[in-house]
């Protein structure tokens, strides 16, 4: 199974991720209360790669600071709302709960 990188980016944008300008690699960071968090994902510069393969889910899980591959898919496929994602990041100590 794989998902188009464009679909992932669109979903991330809706959840509060912002693309960082500059550099060779495509970096998306999650912002909370106007501050940049460590939750992010980098789409490496890999020629011809248009889809994100399931074999990279562990990579995405670490980047997005989630605990399961299912959570990553929920974040991308929309069942997980921005608010639910924030709750998880707060409970994992990734961001401050203000």
């Amino acid at each position: 199974m794989s998902i188009s990188i464009d679909t992932i980016k669109e979903s991330l944008r809706k959840k509060g991720f912002v693309e960082t300008e500059g550099g060779k690699h495509n970096k998306w960071f999650f912002y909370h209360n106007g501050k940049r968090t460590s939750a992010h994902i980098v789409f490496s510069r890999t020629p011809k790669m248009k889809n994100f393969d399931d074999s990279l889910l562990n990579f995405a899980k670490s980047e997005l600071k989630l605990k399961t591959n299912g959570d990553v898919k929920d974040l991308w496929n929309c069942p997980m709302s921005r608010e639910q994602y924030v709750e998880k990041l707060i409970s994992y100590g990734v961001i401050d709960g203000e």
């Binding site: 209360n33 501050k35 940049r36 968090t37 460590s38 990041l89 990734v94 961001i95 401050d96």
Partner: peptide, 11 residues
């Protein structure tokens, strides 16, 4: 190039 006040938590 970031300031602490621009970052949250683990960042």
């Amino acid at each position: 190039n970031s300031k602490d006040e621009e970052l949250s938590g683990d960042a």
